[in-house]
Amino acid sequence: MSDETTGNGTEDQTPENDGQQFDRLPATAEDRVVAGRPTREEVVEWWEQRYEVPPETWDGHTFWEKGNGKIWAFAADVPTPSPVEGLGLRILRARQEHWKPSTNAVQRFCGEATKNVVVLEGDEADRFVRGEDQELDRWDGDWGYLVAAHEFEGEREPIGVGLYLHGELRSTVPKGRQEDLS
């Protein structure tokens, strides 16, 4: 049994996730004290394996959990736990079967991604950012959450997260961020 307290003074109980505060992710599984909490190592490895985002992309960032599996990256350090409302950028939803990257994280950190990136052409990109789902039979990569990208002035830029299933690309662009590019 752990000697840590749960915050209520009760000894010898495993600490639980407190969804009202930011808690730093443990560096490795050996450092984990809250059951089910992802580790920094697991998060970095997931981004690398799923999208081939270089691990050094995350250098200088601390990782935090608030809520049940909402993972945030912060380009600084503060004491843990931290009872603030926001801390950095939400990058990932974990603690479920399929982890889901956030739109902000994909736009900010997936410029160098080389795996599970679907490059959308003009009308496809327009439909995607309007929040429309579309048939996309030409994709022959993995199913699941993809980085949707588009070429702007000769440069490939990530524009959001799409869910690819059964030949269909579903846009997950949040309603408040959907745009009409025409």
Score class of each variant (00 low, 15 high):
27 A>H: 09
150 H>K: 13
139 W>V: 11
97 E>W: 01
79 P>I: 00
175 K>I: 08
21 Q>F: 01
38 P>C: 05
128 F>L: 04
93 R>S: 10
139 W>E: 15
138 R>E: 15
143 W>D: 14
73 A>N: 07
156 R>G: 05
48 E>I: 02
170 R>V: 06
166 H>Y: 08
181 L>N: 09
29 A>Y: 01
8 N>M: 01
161 V>F: 00
113 A>Q: 06
108 R>N: 08
181 L>G: 07
175 K>F: 10
59 D>L: 10
118 V>S: 13
108 R>A: 11
167 G>V: 10
7 G>L: 06
126 D>S: 14
98 H>L: 09
114 T>Q: 12
26 P>H: 03
140 D>V: 11
58 W>D: 07
53 V>T: 11
67 G>V: 03
146 L>S: 12
38 P>S: 05
15 P>Q: 04
103 T>Q: 10
13 Q>S: 10
25 L>C: 01
181 L>H: 13
117 V>K: 10
84 V>W: 02
144 G>K: 06
119 V>G: 09
11 E>I: 08
65 E>T: 05
150 H>E: 14
62 T>V: 10
82 S>Y: 07
5 T>Q: 05
182 S>G: 11
129 V>L: 15
143 W>E: 14
99 W>C: 02
177 R>Y: 07
106 V>R: 09
93 R>A: 04
172 T>W: 07
37 R>L: 03
128 F>D: 01
94 A>C: 03
103 T>L: 08
166 H>G: 04
45 E>N: 11
137 D>F: 14
130 R>K: 13
74 F>M: 07
54 P>W: 11
152 F>T: 02
22 F>H: 08
135 E>I: 10
44 V>G: 02
112 E>R: 03
142 D>S: 10
52 E>Y: 02
55 P>T: 01
175 K>T: 13
12 D>G: 14
133 D>K: 15
145 Y>S: 10
70 K>S: 09
109 F>K: 03
86 G>Q: 11
179 E>N: 03
44 V>I: 15
110 C>S: 13
94 A>F: 01
159 I>L: 09
70 K>G: 06
169 L>E: 13
89 L>M: 13
101 P>T: 03
129 V>S: 13
86 G>N: 07
122 G>K: 12
70 K>I: 01
24 R>S: 09
81 P>C: 12
142 D>G: 07
158 P>I: 02
9 G>H: 05
111 G>V: 05
76 A>C: 00
1 M>L: 14
43 V>L: 03
15 P>Y: 04
169 L>Q: 12
54 P>T: 08
95 R>Q: 13
110 C>M: 13
88 G>T: 04
182 S>D: 13
116 N>A: 15
87 L>K: 00
97 E>R: 09
86 G>H: 07
41 E>R: 09
159 I>P: 01
165 L>K: 11
91 I>C: 04
55 P>N: 00
26 P>Y: 05
144 G>Q: 09
152 F>C: 05
46 W>A: 07
83 P>F: 01
45 E>G: 00
143 W>H: 09
143 W>Y: 06
164 Y>N: 10
122 G>I: 00
32 R>M: 04
153 E>P: 03
173 V>N: 11
99 W>Y: 07
12 D>H: 15
158 P>D: 08
92 L>F: 04
122 G>F: 03
75 A>Y: 06
3 D>H: 11
73 A>K: 04
102 S>D: 09
138 R>Q: 15
29 A>Q: 12
27 A>S: 11
171 S>D: 06
111 G>F: 02
105 A>G: 14
96 Q>T: 10
156 R>K: 14
